[in-house]
């Protein structure tokens, strides 16, 4: 199960190795070649010799997580967040640290020992610690180094058409590119860019695009859905189960009109249920790609996920299939009409 394998892997920004190795093994039999670049992006190429537009499909391998910033004399570990995490979600979670996946928990003072007033306020980051069971600093030093990265330990599970797990943003995009490369033959060169460091400032993907110089790029993402109690309908941004979300404009990019039209046409023709992403908050690698060199037409399609950037998010697998169908449909248009 590809999504399970990918989402349970560790891949906090700049430490995407486990994810990269899974992807390499998955795509190898189906692509012309793959390579890594200076940043650590993995690029898989299919149909390189074909004529027609050069297309980049981009998704990022990295996920938000934690970085160990101090080893206390007590053996407890202080940490900071890598990428955007609401600090209030951290307490009372299981984590794993570093390459050897040292298990730990994020603890807090028991409720019995708290003042009433304390409970009303969120626990600040500098009052949270990871406990790995080390009795003192010396013991901790044998297991953990400063700068080590940690993730949540959430397991993937599927209930009907819904899936829950961590790092859907953006392992679902990685999975979609992998499956497209496995299932499809293309009439034009397609570059699957599995990018690093999206969560810390859209750092990776555009560097790959700089070398590839594609005619167009499509970013496949997991995006936030807020179709939950407490949000008015006009604040949902996306709705789970209503199909893949097409971005018109976010804080990093305005989707290129030509691609946008093509996507809508493909959706209509193939009767693919879709929705617009109904906010312009948040940015993706497409923004950085679009500004490479003389400019690269770019677009973003995403699968709505509730509780994104937290230990457990939820998505609809029909939306995921819809995302793939939309890319396939658009590719059929590209094959016919060019770009």
């Amino acid at each position: 199960m590809l999504l399970k394998k990918l989402t349970e892997a560790m891949g906090v920004s700049s430490n995407e190795d486990e994810v990269r190795e899974i992807i390499k093994a998955e795509v190898e039999p189906y692509v012309d070649r793959y390579y890594t670049d200076m940043m650590g992006n993995l690029i898989a190429v299919k149909g390189e010799d074909k004529s027609g537009p050069r297309v980049v499909l981009s998704a990022h391998m990295d996920e938000v997580g934690l970085m160990i910033t101090k080893l206390e004399d007590s053996g407890l570990l202080k940490f900071k967040t890598v990428g955007g995490i609401d600090e209030r979600i951290l307490v009372s979670k299981q984590v794993q640290i570093g390459k050897s996946k040292i298990p730990g928990v994020i603890g807090a003072k028991a409720i019995h020992l708290q003042q009433k007033e304390e409970q009303k306020k969120p626990i600040p980051l500098n009052k949270l610690y990871i406990d790995i069971g080390a009795k003192n600093k010396e013991e901790a030093e044998k297991l953990v180094e400063l700068g080590d990265l940690a993730t949540f330990t959430t397991k993937y599970s599927q209930i009907g058409e819904y899936a829950t797990g961590k790092a859907f943003d953006d392992r679902l995009g990685c999975a979609a590119i992998i499956e497209l490369m496995q299932e499809e033959e293309f009439d034009f060169p397609v570059y699957g860019v599995f990018a690093v460091q999206e969560e810390v400032g859209l750092r990776g993907s555009a560097r790959a695009a700089y070398a590839i110089e594609p005619d167009l790029a499509i970013e496949l993402e997991g995006t936030s859905a807020s179709d939950v109690p407490g949000t008015e309908k006009h604040g949902y941004s996306t709705t789970v189960g209503e199909g893949p979300a097409i971005t018109v404009m976010d804080s990093s990019v305005i989707t290129h009109k030509k691609i946008l039209k093509g996507l809508l046409k493909a959706a209509e023709k193939n009767e693919i249920k879709y929705q617009y992403r109904r906010t312009n908050v948040g940015g993706t690698d497409a923004g950085m790609i679009s500004l490479v060199k003389e400019g690269i037409p770019a677009a973003v399609i995403s699968v709505p996920c509730r509780y994104i950037h937290s230990p457990v998010s939820l998505m609809n697998l029909d939306d995921y299939q819809g995302l793939k169908a939309l890319v396939k449909g658009y590719f059929a248009e590209l094959e016919k009409e060019g770009f």
């Binding site: 309908k233 006009h234 018109v248 617009y276 109904r278 312009n280």
Partner: peptide, 17 residues
């Protein structure tokens, strides 16, 4: 403005450009 939502009564919701 960027139109983000159309409600049952025909009112448009928006965000900024």
């Amino acid at each position: 403005l960027l139109i983000t939502h159309i409600d049952e009564n025909g009112f448009l919701r928006f965000t900024k450009i």
